[in-house]
Nucleic acid binder design. Sequence first.
DNA 1: GTCGGCATACCGACCGGTCGGTGTCCAAAG
DNA 2: CTTTGGACACCGACCGGTCGGTATGCCGAC
Lengths: 207, 207
Amino acid sequence: MTRASTRKPGEATGDDQAAVPRRLLEHATKLFAKKGFDRTSVQEIVEAAGVTKGAMYHYFGSKDDLLYEIYARVLREQTRQLESVASSGAPLRERLAAAASDVVVSSIDNLDDNTIFLQSMHQLSPDKQKAVRAERRKYHERFRGLVEEGQASGEFRTDKPADVVVDFFFGSVHHLGSWYRRSGSLTARQIGDHYADLLLDALRPPG
Amino acid sequence: MTRASTRKPGEATGDDQAAVPRRLLEHATKLFAKKGFDRTSVQEIVEAAGVTKGAMYHYFGSKDDLLYEIYARVLREQTRQLESVASSGAPLRERLAAAASDVVVSSIDNLDDNTIFLQSMHQLSPDKQKAVRAERRKYHERFRGLVEEGQASGEFRTDKPADVVVDFFFGSVHHLGSWYRRSGSLTARQIGDHYADLLLDALRPPG
DNA sequence: GTCGGCATACCGACCGGTCGGTGTCCAAAG
DNA sequence: CTTTGGACACCGACCGGTCGGTATGCCGAC
């Protein structure tokens, strides 16, 4: 140690002095997104984070754990955001549009997490996979609730099952990572609004 | 060999006597879809196909080659289908609806190939990945041409970029594998028609 | 004989995970 | 103030196992 300090363990003192677990998660996310979970060795992760394997296995039970934590963080954040938007007092169409646009924006802001989500889910251990799926389903159900609300009130068409529409939409969202490039001409919010429009207009009762 | 025969090499003489390369491709597809490319060992594939590693490396240059052949087959078939539908003399809306519905049906009929496509693309060697992307882009461009045709004629809204709409739609299609179950209550064609409707209605000029 | 079409045995690389050890800090004892 | 003990955070060499790929041999067809 060249730098002596009185920092408490777990406390960040600078850019590359961030808490070790955070650094591990951060670099693991980048590497998993770029090369895939299986193609990324634990050795690579710890080297990128500037620590050793001992450190990693001190904080995480396994390589799987690392992946799971990445998922859990994303899911928590997206669920929190949806809940906040969906339960506001705004009119239904606005709430749905905001929820749709927001999930697109947050997916673009965290493209790496998004990429990992669709590429590596099946590489988790079965029980952790179950946990992720359950959380994911809760999220989808909340979103579907908004669609069903509009169908019940007559604002939306009823000739398309709500779950089909929801899966249709989230397919698009999950695939953002495969084509969206930051160098493109559209901002994340613009894409989000386009997607929200497409969803809302697809839900208009047929003329 | 317990069974002697006078069949020519490469000639099918029965169900499990199909040509060796075909059997390898078939079982590799199933295993890749179920366990992922990296988690499937060459040993497992050849055992499932009832041959040995020697046979596999006789017909394929590498494990990567196997994956690439699976992609190439799917791409060829989908491109052929799109071309046939898109260039028929039918009205534009019908051609686009048919193209959309067809790609959904074929994606569901070959759910395994579809699953592999979105999970394992990045595990191909860079040059093969480039080849796949190029072919894929040609397909998307042909599809986008239909959308642009409708925008030019005034049938479709022009306030959404055609490429955004196309990516929106194909995101949904690619993700069918993550939720569609054959045990569900909707047939592949029903889903296809729903998806086509959603696309066409999202493209209606805003009222 | 020789050539395609495989089978079998084997290699070297690599990988996830373990484990005994080490430095640092703090708190209580003396 | 000094000593001591031990919890915490981390290090890094090492191991058992697996995997993609290869070298070589056999065998029937021509």
